[in-house]
Design a binder for these strands. Structure first.
Lengths: 211, 211
DNA sequence: TAAAAATGCTAACAATTGTTAGCGGGTTAT
DNA sequence: ATAACCCGCTAACAATTGTTAGCATTTTTA
């Protein structure tokens, strides 16, 4: 009632609109992912985030426990996503190495197209995690690259893949895919499926036209 | 003399050691590039930088005018470097499209190996430039990609290159090269020349072994 | 409908940010 | 030797940072 005595206009508190099937925390994380992508984790302030959520900064802390936690959720959700996919691919029988590589590539591209903000952020901003999480993420990333390298080395042994340095091939693949960022910004986008086919083709068969 | 009255030990001021052929400003920018790469532009403070230079934060301002200026110097020096190279390649007569692409690729890889910190920073942190410089950089980057795309489209027309979407090929190329970051961190590095050959080969002829 | 839980607000905090002012010692040029 | 300049220092600034405390309001539960 005190508020009524001090101001004659009723106080209306902004509420975080939550979509069906999503908590308010999910809304905050989604907005955060967008801002982290645009400006980077460090350059995004909690007041910044709050404004985009439509609420005061302090109110965010009813849903999350710290700024760091937001980044953790984004990074580990994405990492787990990729991890479980590669395990699935690896366990599939009757697949050539090239087919496995194609499956991994296509999954990366799809993820980049469908969950752009979070995949992008988790790839570029994971360095800002703090220490139990930071080491964990480093380990996980190394393990992930190692699994892909094994697929490639397997393919080399079977004569399906050129005898190149497998870790080099992995880093080319993964970074090439993260280039979809530029595609997202570009004016004249080609369709997602065309992009996917082009990327897979270039990485598997190269730029040069065979004679 | 006042200082002598207050403390019995003589005051020794740290001086920025400058290498031959380099100003103190150059030293600051080099250290900044290293820190910006490790922690990002926003997460690097001037006191942080000062400590690595071996000086107090305020002293930096005898050599640079702002934190923003440091980023500008790094970004535009690198950008100009790439711009003049592609002009040179473009002007070279009697070169096939594939040869031009190879020359561009090799230049990128070399730059990444030789000027790692600055190239990396200018690629990942240019978004933190402020506005006259930000727009300028955006324009320059777009123009640069466009020139490479033209080379590719030319190659497609002449039947040297597969008929793929040229902008897609460009973004794959450029981002693949920036993956050398992972190579720098990796324990068991292969030699720079091997890396270069591998990358060029994969991008030009793909992973798959021809039958 | 009353109690409990969830969620918002304002105000404030301590720390950190980039940067400036002003001073003095050290080096170089006259 | 003396003047001028370069360059480092300390101290301080206003702004911004992430976060907490305490209270008010709305929504859910009983």
């Amino acid at each position: 009632m005190l508020a009524f005595l001090l101001s004659l206009t009723p106080i209306i508190m902004a509420k975080i609109k939550r979509n069906r099937n999503g908590t308010r925390k999910d809304v905050i994380i989604a907005k955060a992912a967008k801002l982290f992508r645009e400006k980077g984790f460090s350059a995004t302030s909690m007041r910044d985030l709050a404004e985009h959520v439509g609420v005061e900064a302090a109110s965010l802390y009813n849903h999350i426990s710290s700024k760091a936690e937001i980044l953790q959720e984004i990074c580990f959700k994405t990492a787990n996503n990729f991890m479980s996919h590669i395990e699935e691919v690896d366990a599939t029988p009757n697949k050539t190495a090239i087919e496995k590589i194609q499956a991994i590539l296509r999954f990366h591209i799809r993820q980049m197209l469908d969950n752009y903000e979070e995949v992008y952020v988790s790839d570029r901003e994971w360095k800002h995690l703090t220490d139990p999480y930071l080491s964990n993420m480093q380990t996980q990333r190394r393990a992930y690259r190692q699994r892909i390298a094994s697929v490639i080395e397997d393919g080399i042994r079977k004569g399906e893949i050129k005898p190149i340095d497998a870790p080099t091939a992995v880093l080319i693949m993964l970074h090439a895919v993260s280039g979809i960022e530029s595609w997202h910004r570009s004016k004249k986008k080609i369709a997602g499926e065309v992009l996917e086919d082009n990327m897979v083709q270039i990485l598997v068969d190269g730029l040069r036209k065979q004679a």
